[in-house]
Nucleic acid binder design. Structure first.
Lengths: 160, 160
DNA sequence: TTTTTGGTTCTTTATTTGCAGAACCAAAAA
DNA sequence: TTTTTGGTTCTGCAAATAAAGAACCAAAAA
C-alpha cells in the first residue's frame, strides 16, 4: 500500500516541521513533536504505544513529554471503560486557558519596572526614567484593555 | 565608606534577583544580569569595563550578552566624541517596539493551527476540530483588536 | 496466585549551552 | 611606527538538558 506509507511519511514530515515551531516557542524537542503528532493524528486521541511507535522514541522520553504537556495544560487524556490505556489528546479548552493566562502575565514586567523606577527615583537621568515609565504605562494600558477584551470574547462565544 | 559598599551590595543583590526574572522570560543568565544592571545603574549608560567589573564576568560573556540584547532590540549604545568607548544602555523605545512585535507574533500560532485544520478537513472528529477553530478565532479576534489598541495607544501618547 | 500491561522512575550517555581565558584585531593614541 | 585600548572571536571546559534503556511498580487479567 504505497498510499498509506506515503501518508505516514507526510505525517512524520509535518510532525518534524511543526515540532521545530514548538521548540522555538520554548518546548523541548520531544514535547514539541508529541504535541504536533496529537494535533495531526486521526483519531485525535492516541495511546502511549502509538505515540511512541510513531515518533520512534523511548518510553521515558514519551512519558516525560506527555507529563510536561499536561502540566502546561495543553494535553490531557480520556479513558474508555474496559480499556486500561490512557488516550492522550490536545485539550483545546485548557490550552486556550493557558494562552489567556500568558496574556495576563503581561503585568509581571510592569511590576518589575515599577520596582526599578522606585529604585531610580533620585536619578538625574529623567529621560531614561520617562522611557521606562512609558513602558509601564503601555503595560497598564494593555492590562486594562485585556479585561474588556476578555468580556467581549466571552460574550461573542456565548452568543453563538 | 560603609554606605557605598552597602549600596553596591544592594545593587548586586537586585541584579541577581531581576536577572532570575529575565531568565524565566527566556534570556540566558548573563544577558539577564546585564539587562538588570543597565536598568538599575546610575548613570543608565555604562561602558564595557564597568559592566564587566560590576558583574565579575569575562569579557567574552559580556560581549556576547550585549550583542544578544542588542539583537533583541532592548539595548543599544551611545558614544561621546573624543571617547572611544561605547556606553551601553537600555533603549526604551526599541524595547517597546520589540514588545509590540511580540504581541503581533500571536498570528503565527493561528497560522499553524489553520494549517492543521486544513490537514484535518476530512476528520470525523468534529468536536476536536471545533476546539481548534475556537483557538484560531480567539487569535483572530485578538489580532484584530490589537490594531485598534495600537492606534488608541499612539493617540494617547501623542495627546500628552 | 502469577503474568501481563501501561506506564513511571532511575541510571547512564550524548548533546547543547554558558562561560572563562587567551588569542586576536582595528582604530586611536603616543 | 609602536603601543594601548575597547572590544570580538576562538578554544576549550564545566554544567545543564534531552533522551535511551533498564529496572521497576501498581492494577488488571489470566
Amino acid at each position: 500500500m504505497a498510499e498509506i506509507s506515503d501518508k505516514r511519511e507526510r505525517l512524520k514530515a509535518k510532525v518534524e516541521e511543526m515540532g521545530i515551531y514548538f521548540e522555538k516557542k520554548g518546548l523541548s524537542p520531544m514535547p514539541g513533536r508529541v504535541l504536533a503528532f496529537l494535533l495531526l493524528a486521526e483519531p485525535p486521541y492516541q495511546d502511549f504505544y502509538s505515540i511512541q511507535e510513531s515518533l520512534q522514541a523511548s518510553k521515558s522520553a514519551i512519558s516525560n513529554a506527555l507529563n510536561h504537556l499536561q502540566r502546561d495544560g495543553v494535553v490531557d487524556y480520556i479513558t474508555f471503560s474496559g480499556d486500561r490505556r490512557r488516550y492522550f489528546r490536545v485539550n483545546s479548552k485548557s490550552w486556550l486557558d493557558s494562552i489567556e493566562s500568558k496574556i495576563n502575565d503581561i503585568t509581571t514586567l510592569r511590576d518589575l519596572l515599577t520596582d526599578v523606577l522606585h529604585e531610580r527615583k533620585d536619578s538625574k537621568y529623567l529621560d531614561f526614567n520617562e522611557g521606562l515609565e512609558t513602558i509601564v504605562e503601555f503595560h497598564t494600558f494593555i492590562a486594562g484593555k485585556v479585561e474588556a477584551l476578555k468580556a467581549e470574547w466571552n460574550a461573542l462565544k456565548a452568543g453563538k
